Computed example of a mutant assay.
Amino acid sequence: MLRSVKGVICQGPKLDFGYFLHASARAWLSAAVNQDVQIPAEKPRTVFRTNESNPANHAEQHEGQHYSIPLQEVKVVFPHGLPYRFQMQMKTFNESCLMVRKPALELLGYLKNTNFAHPAIRYVIYGEKGTGKTMTLCHAVHYCAKQDWLVLHIPDAHLWVKNCRELMQSSYNKERFDQPLEASTWLKNFKTSNDHFLKEVSPEELTLVHNLRKMVVNDWNGGAIVTTLSQTGSLFKPRSAYLPHELLGKEGFDTLDPFIPIQVSNYSQREFESCYQYYLDRKWLQHERASTEEGRNELLFLSNSNPWQLERISAYL
């Protein structure tokens, strides 16, 4: 079986509810930042939004900017595939915004230039915990959906079998799963509708765990295989491990090889500034010092530019 894991980074200092900064962080920054310095009123803000909502048009000039996905479109493209905390953020902000990041641009570039006459290419998204691997995958899924491709999105392989069993219990679906078909065959129907897809796959094919491995075999053409590595389900692996050969083991690595690795790292300076300005714009940062240069530097220090850490720290402010 393939095992998917992702690495873990140490959590930063925790914030007490009555304080903006951990004491040690405040001491560290006092030597580097003058507390009396305020952001000049005339200092221009980083452009953190783009009006370009079609992922097919995203390019280097959009890197670090947020683009909006209509909420009705989110329900269609990601019925179960968005991280829980991002869904909560959507409810809070009343909008769905994804940041255009370099790893996603790299992956979209590959997909745009794919020769579909050749065997499907495998892409493996990997990185440390909280760097944004899932959101990179979601950006790619949104691109494929906008291209009218058939997208088989499995957010959690461990829950997939359970969900498929529930799907089969519906009398509506039982009437449509009447023609057994090899997995490699239905994957070739890359641009068919979801309804047509449901008519062609037998219940047995969807509920067998071993089909997860069959889906990453590139003995078909007309599409692409994009996977992410997470720590869930991995046994006897160091918590700091996140590289493909560390997490997959020999059997899993040999099953995916050859593949193109896509590494997702912490925010770049531009991306951190964009996220910080976005949180300010959405009133996510409420503390009186959050909008000062000192507050910005404190968030940068505490989060180490890790997207997950920055979101969690900002939630207390």
Rank of each mutant, 00 (worst) to 15 (best):
Phe17Pro: 04
Ala104His: 00
Leu15Val: 05
Ala104Lys: 03
His245Ile: 04
Pro70Asp: 06
Ile225Ser: 01
Pro79Gly: 02
Ala140Val: 00
Ser234Thr: 11
Glu204Ala: 14
Ala31Phe: 09
Asn51Cys: 13
Val209Trp: 13
Phe259Asp: 03
Leu82Phe: 08
Thr136Asp: 00
Tyr267Lys: 01
Trp308Asp: 09
Phe20Trp: 08
Lys174Tyr: 08
Trp149Tyr: 11
Gln179Cys: 14
Gln169Lys: 14
Phe272Met: 01
Phe78Cys: 02
Arg3Cys: 11
Pro307Ala: 04
Pro307Glu: 00
Asn51Arg: 11
Asn211Pro: 03
Lys102Ala: 03
Met135Glu: 15
Leu243His: 13
Asn304Asp: 08
Glu182Asn: 15
Ala140Lys: 12
Arg176Ser: 00
Phe259Asn: 04
Leu280Lys: 02
Trp186Ser: 00
Glu205Asn: 12
Arg165Ala: 03
His66Met: 05
Val74Met: 08
Pro103Gln: 04
Phe272Glu: 00
Asp254His: 12
Thr136Val: 14
Val37Leu: 14
Thr92Pro: 06
Ala315Cys: 05
Asp148Thr: 05
Lys146Cys: 15
Asn173Ile: 14
Thr131Gly: 01
Asp36Cys: 04
Tyr316Thr: 13
Leu208Glu: 12
Gln231Pro: 12
Leu159Met: 06
Val161Lys: 10
Pro307His: 00
Val216Ala: 03
Tyr84Pro: 07
Glu175His: 03
Arg270Ile: 02
Leu256Asp: 01
Ile9Val: 14
Ala224Cys: 06
Glu200Met: 15
Pro238Cys: 03
Asn306Tyr: 08
Gln231His: 13
Ser274Lys: 02
Thr227Ser: 06
Tyr267Ala: 07
Asn173Cys: 10
Val216Arg: 04
Glu271Ala: 02
Arg45Val: 08
Asn113Gly: 10
Ser4Asp: 05
Ser303Met: 05
Leu256Trp: 09
Ala23Gln: 13
Lys283Gly: 09
Phe272Ser: 00
Lys283Met: 03
Asn163Asp: 12
Lys43Arg: 15
His80Trp: 10
Lys188Tyr: 15
Leu310Gln: 00
Leu300Cys: 04
Asp281Lys: 08
Leu71Ile: 07
Tyr143Ser: 03
Pro238Met: 04
Leu187Phe: 12
Ser234Ala: 07
Arg176Thr: 12
Glu298Arg: 09
Glu251Ala: 15
Ala23Ser: 13
Lys162Asn: 11
Ala25Lys: 07
Gln72Leu: 14
Gln263Asn: 13
Cys138Pro: 12
Ala31Ile: 07
